[in-house]
Design a protein around this nucleic acid. Sequence first.
DNA 1: AAGCCGGGGAA
DNA 2: TTCCCAGGCTT
Length: 363
Amino acid sequence: MPPTEREQVRALLAWFRRAARPLPWRPRTLDAPRDPYLVLVSEVMLQQTQAARVAERLPAFLARFPDLASLAAATEHDALALWSGLGYYRRARNLHAAAREIASRHRATIPPDPATLATLPGIGDYTAAAVASLAHRVPAPAVDGNVARVVIRLNGLDLAAASPLARAAARERIAGWMAALPRTAHPGLVNEALIELGATVCTPRAPRCHACPLRTSCTAARTATQHDLPRPAAPAARTPLYCDALLALDRRGRLLVEPRPARGLWAALWQAPTREHNARRATARSLRAWLALDLPLTRADRFTHATTHRAAEFTVWNAGTLGAPEARALANARPGSQWLTRTAAARLPLSTPQRRILLESRS
DNA sequence: AAGCCGGGGAA
DNA sequence: TTCCCAGGCTT
């Protein structure tokens, strides 16, 4: 006799109560009511980001923005600064916009309805279901990459994890489990337990099937195909990007920084004045021509930085300490640029490579 | 449906 | 090196 849905979900939740990792956004008593704002912020920060990294960065974000009102009252710039180094910076801008929308249009209450949640910027199907189920006990299936992988193996589906068919199969599975739950049970825990299972047991490589509460129901485990599923996705192409950054100081030891465009890579973040080219490095001469300034430039550093779609190579050019006329001319050549102390620059929203250039270079 | 958007840890 | 992570938005 294969396990019934009721038996499967009981085994899953029993395993979760035993094996749940202590995480900053997770209450000690799993059934305890959760602060919807904490659920919202943690779920957005967890998008495409591993739990260990969020555990490092969430406390500082919450210390600065302890509730919805404080985030809604903050500037986008400040929200972005607390996101520095976390990547996918649109998440921070969307979260800030969502907080403002909730404050102004939803009486400062995180909506309980997944469809309403999904109208907020940066909240898609997964996050809407996660917030509704964990914060408001709404039985909405939340399917992330972990859960898709678990169900693909459970059902023995020869699909990629991102496949819409796999996502639909997972939603159906979870809906069945939630319906089989006792009235008083917490449906959000089904979502959380499946995510935990995917993150710690049903891992992409070397799954630990012997420790899995669903192994007796799993097609992949029975046919020994857990290593072949999900089907691997096509690798993304990575195009080169050459970045030549200018490290300049004025006589007071301040650094010149400029804002990036509001769209595209590292959108709305700040940087040392940087020239980007997709085909070749700059030379000292070409940089002088680009700035229309005759500055003495020496090459100070060179390093690579990979993102999902780019292989960036940064060259750092040291312009040394500039006199007042040169400092004025350089700032005028870079729209929106400002001379800031090292301390002030450290508080800006910066990408990881620009943080290295501005704050770790010898200057 | 496919491309774009970061960064880091693990193997 | 490659892979993938508590995804979402745009085209």
